[in-house]
């Protein structure tokens, strides 16, 4: 899974969000490293909808503009959980191996 996809699914993990809120969440989760622009975000959301990972929760009108609120669908929850478990396994193994290095003992605690 590419990082922007992981960040988008993570941004939707706790609650449904509209497009701009997702942009902000992605910036926050990645500590400002990843910034999805409008077209890229919209294309990614369309693709994730086609794949069944994301669904439109509801549509609302704010300041005269219609916008959709997106939510994580069940396949998206599963994919995110699997990717999280994979990353956690790698991180745990990396920490274990780093802890074996004499000079780094306690550094990863």
């Amino acid at each position: 899974m590419q990082e922007p996809t992981l960040l988008l699914l993570t941004a939707l993990a706790d609650e449904p969000r509209h497009g701009y809120a997702l942009m902000q969440e992605v910036v926050e989760i990645s500590n400002g490293r990843v910034r999805l622009r409008t077209g890229t975000l919209y294309g990614a959301l369309e693709r994730l909808q086609r794949e069944g990972m994301v669904r439109v929760e509801r549509e609302e009108v704010v300041d005269g503009r219609a916008r959709k609120v997106y939510a994580l669908a069940e396949p998206g929850v599963t994919a995110l959980a699997e990717e999280t478990a994979r990353l956690r396994a790698v991180a745990t193994e990396a920490e274990r191996r780093l802890a074996l290095r004499p000079g780094l003992k306690g550094a990863t605690a």
């Binding site: 409008t38 975000l41 919209y42």
Partner: peptide, 9 residues
Amino acid sequence: ELAAIYAEA
């Protein structure tokens, strides 16, 4: 929707 996201962004 694109206009809504774009306007906020």
